[in-house]
């Protein structure tokens, strides 16, 4: 779970302003809800840290992105050429393509698995011990990513558990140093994303499906609906909202992958597992191209915004009942 969870944006904005009691207006300061200058004092600390540590750095990033600077010496104005580099440099374009591959592993697979798993549980009705299973399956969401990375590095080791299992069942040909393999390193990292995201999707869908009236299913069964029909005509439409949330959270997680790549592969072998966030870090702090780094970071931010808005719009439109 990440701190920056865009799915929260735009939610719950439908309440009207509560009616204010006129009776108490003569009290000291008036009731909350009355227009008052005091409110500015209450929001001041939040606003101050927000401006200083989000607003200002964002503006400075935009400024940096127009210069060529190695972080130490003097800087040169280069206009928008850092941005054109983001789209034309094969290495940077590669990072975005890798992010696309990761979206399949982080978002598409976990959402499908989570839907399947939750639907199975709902069909089974009241299952004893479901609460315990829910806690266990959600666990990967809370473990620090660095720890996750270390665990999976061990699994992928040349002599690690994965290769041992493959050799034990006679598939020696498939055994390989997964994270050092040009073809398999990226899917290997992606699979970890699947492991992390599936529990989140499962829990979200389980909560969504719990709100579906049982009578709908009973009526469908009286009509002779099969499990598959039930799923597509009742379950799936009912969890569209949760689907939008799950997709937003997991796609953003894929786009922002950093810790995993930093610890597991450092972008290698070659640049096979380089992703946008890692390239931002590498350009800013390892190879001294601050302008490129900030341009890349802002493009990434723009993509995050667009994905959030698009996915939520689709979810909201179809979610109308």
């Amino acid at each position: 779970m990440e701190r920056t969870q865009p799915a929260r944006a735009g939610a719950g904005e439908t309440h009207g302003e509560p009616a204010t009691g006129r009776r108490a207006a003569k009290r000291r300061g008036g009731p909350p809800g009355e227009p008052r200058k005091l409110a500015y004092l209450y929001i001041l600390p939040a606003l101050l840290v927000f401006v200083l540590f989000i607003g200002w750095p964002l503006f400075r990033s935009a400024t940096f992105s127009l210069y060529e600077w190695d972080g130490l010496g003097s800087s040169t104005w280069v206009g928008l050429s850092n941005y054109s580099a983001v789209f034309s440099d094969p290495a940077l374009r590669g990072a975005f393509i890798h992010a696309l591959v990761l979206i399949v592993f982080y978002a598409v697979v976990p959402v499908s698995l989570g839907l399947m798993l939750a639907a199975t549980m709902m069909r089974a009705g009241r299952m004893r011990g479901l609460g315990v299973f829910r806690v266990l399956i959600f666990l990967p969401q809370v473990v620090p990513m660095v720890v996750v990375a270390i665990a999976w590095r061990q699994i992928y080791e040349p002599t690690g558990p994965l290769n041992s299992v493959l050799r034990a069942v006679g598939l020696d040909g498939l055994a390989r140093p997964w994270l050092g393999d040009y073809t398999w390193a990226l899917p290997a990292v992606g699979l970890v994303g699947t492991w992390v995201g599936t529990g989140l999707c499962f829990v979200l869908f389980l909560a969504g499906m719990a709100k579906i009236p049982r009578e709908l299913y009973e009526a469908a069964r009286l009509d002779g609906a099969r499990a598959r029909q039930e799923f597509f005509s009742i379950t799936l439409p009912a969890v569209r909202g949760e689907l939008a949330v799950a997709l937003t959270l997991t796609i953003i997680a894929a786009l922002k992958t950093f810790d995993l790549v930093y610890v597991m592969t450092s972008g290698g072998p070659g640049r096979q597992t380089a992703v946008p966030s890692f390239e931002v870090y590498r350009h800013a702090f390892l190879i001294g191209e601050v302008g490129t780094a900030t341009a890349l970071a802002l493009v990434l931010t723009a993509i995050v915004f667009v994905v959030t808005v698009l996915v939520n719009r689709i979810g909201a439109e179809r979610g109308q009942r």
């Binding site: 540590f53 972080g71 953003i252 601050v290 970071a297 931010t301």
Partner: peptide, 14 residues
């Protein structure tokens, strides 16, 4: 909430 840390840390660091 939507701004990723990546867009802040570089400028903030310098």
């Amino acid at each position: 909430i939507m701004v990723p840390a990546e867009a802040l840390v570089v400028a903030l660091y310098f």
